[in-house]
Computed example of a mutant assay.
Amino acid sequence: MSTTTALLDGVAAAERDLPATGAIVGALGKLAGTRATLQALRTVEGRARTELDQAIAEASDRERRLHGTAAAHSIGADATTVQLARDAIDRFIRSGDRLVGARRDRASQHEQTIQGRTWYRRPPPERLVGDTLRRQKVGRGAV
């Protein structure tokens, strides 16, 4: 029995000598949370890199087309020239919109004028029917 008691005393002494495991378990929990956060951030970074690569490719394509168009029309591709061309295009579009509006107004006025002339040349059908009936009565001597 003394051997058993000595063994139990040894186990109790070893337990006292070991550090507490609460801090280690807490640190492992934090590590697992940090790993999950890191993985999520890596996923977001991967998506952002993909979007950046696509944006760079689109910008390169636009620049290539800009230089091609500039060369085809013998104009510069610098920012000032491009802005001047953009402003000229905007002015052209606005004047086209104004022209379309003016043509639409003119067509509407023309249509109203034609309808007005038609009204005076030809009376409405109900007036024609009334005039015809009056003439028939006059012809019979009944007015």
Rank of each mutant, 00 (worst) to 15 (best):
T4P: 06
A6T: 12
L8G: 07
D9M: 09
D9G: 08
G10I: 05
G10V: 02
A13D: 03
A13R: 13
A14V: 08
A14M: 10
A14R: 07
R16Q: 12
D17A: 09
A20E: 13
A20V: 02
A23G: 14
V25R: 10
L28A: 15
L31C: 08
G33H: 05
R35K: 15
R35P: 00
A36L: 10
A36E: 12
A36Q: 14
T37I: 09
T37F: 06
L41P: 00
T43G: 15
E45A: 12
E45Y: 03
G46N: 14
R47F: 01
A48S: 12
A48H: 11
A48I: 10
T50M: 08
D53L: 11
D53R: 08
Q54C: 01
A55Y: 06
I56D: 02
A59T: 13
A59V: 07
R62M: 04
H67W: 03
H67S: 04
T69N: 13
A72M: 04
S74Q: 09
I75A: 05
A77T: 00
A79D: 12
Q83G: 06
Q83I: 03
A85I: 08
A88S: 10
A88T: 11
A88Y: 04
R91Y: 06
R91H: 07
R94K: 13
D97A: 09
L99N: 03
V100A: 12
R103S: 04
R104D: 09
S108H: 10
Q109M: 11
Q112C: 01
Q112E: 13
I114K: 10
I114P: 00
G116K: 09
R117P: 01
W119L: 12
Y120I: 14
R122L: 11
R122T: 13
P124G: 02
P125W: 05
V129T: 09
G130D: 05
T132C: 07
L133D: 12
R135K: 12
V138N: 07
